[in-house]
Amino acid sequence: MTAKTFDAIIIGAGQAGPPLAGRLTAAGMSVALIERKLVGGTCVNTGCMPTKAMVASAYAAHLARRAADYGVTLSGPVGVDYKVIKARKDKVSNDARDNLESWIAGMDKCMLYRGHARFASANTVRVGDDLLTAEKIFLNTGGRASVPDLPGVDDISYLTNSSMMNLD
C-alpha cells in the first residue's frame, strides 16, 4: 500500500485542528485532517456551545419569571418546553459542526479523513485502509469523559458531560 504524502497531518478536528489546517493551507501546504468522531470536538458537540445554549434558555425562563420585578406583566405562568430547548441546543451544535465541515471542505489542499488515527511510523499515520505520511504531525486529540474506577459505579446509571447532552 502506498502512503499518501502531505506537508502536514493534523490528528483531531476539534477546537484547534480546523484553524491550524486553515493557516497551513493558506501558507500553501497540503494537509490531512483526521477526525475520529465529530468535527468541532468537545466545544461544539458536548461542551461550550450546547451547554451555553441550554443556559441561555434557563436564563430566559428565569428573567420571564421575574418579569414583574421589571414592571412587565405576563398573561400566564412561564412554561418550559424541554423538547424545544433540546432541539435548539442540537441545532446550535449541528449548525456549528456543519459550518466547520463546509469550511474544511472548501480549503484548497486539505483532505478530511474520518476514522481512528494510529501511528505506523514516526511520520506515517494509518486511518482505516489509508496510510498518510508527512514531516509535520500535529496532535489535537482533545479529551473525553472518564468514569472513575470506583466500586459499584458499573452497577448504577450515571451521566458524563457527553451523555447528559443527549437526555430527552
Rank of each mutant, 00 (worst) to 15 (best):
M1L: 12
T2Q: 14
A3R: 07
K4L: 05
D7K: 02
G22A: 07
T25R: 02
A27P: 03
K37F: 07
V39H: 03
G40W: 03
N45M: 06
C48L: 03
M49T: 14
M49W: 02
K52I: 08
K52N: 05
A58S: 15
A58M: 12
A60I: 15
L63T: 09
R65V: 04
R66E: 10
A68E: 12
A68T: 12
D69F: 10
G71K: 00
T73V: 12
L74A: 01
L74V: 00
L74N: 00
S75I: 13
G76T: 12
G76C: 06
G76M: 03
V84C: 15
K86W: 05
A87F: 05
V92C: 08
D95A: 15
N99H: 13
E101D: 10
I104K: 00
I104M: 06
A105M: 07
A105Y: 04
K109R: 12
M111A: 15
R118G: 10
F119G: 00
A120H: 00
A120E: 06
A120K: 04
A122H: 10
N123V: 11
T124I: 12
V127T: 02
G128D: 11
D130F: 00
L131W: 04
I137H: 00
L139A: 02
T141Q: 05
R144A: 11
A145K: 09
S146V: 14
V147L: 07
P148K: 04
P148G: 03
D149S: 12
L150E: 12
V153D: 06
D155E: 10
I156A: 09
Y158R: 08
Y158H: 13
T160I: 09
S163I: 04
M165K: 00
M165T: 01
D168S: 12
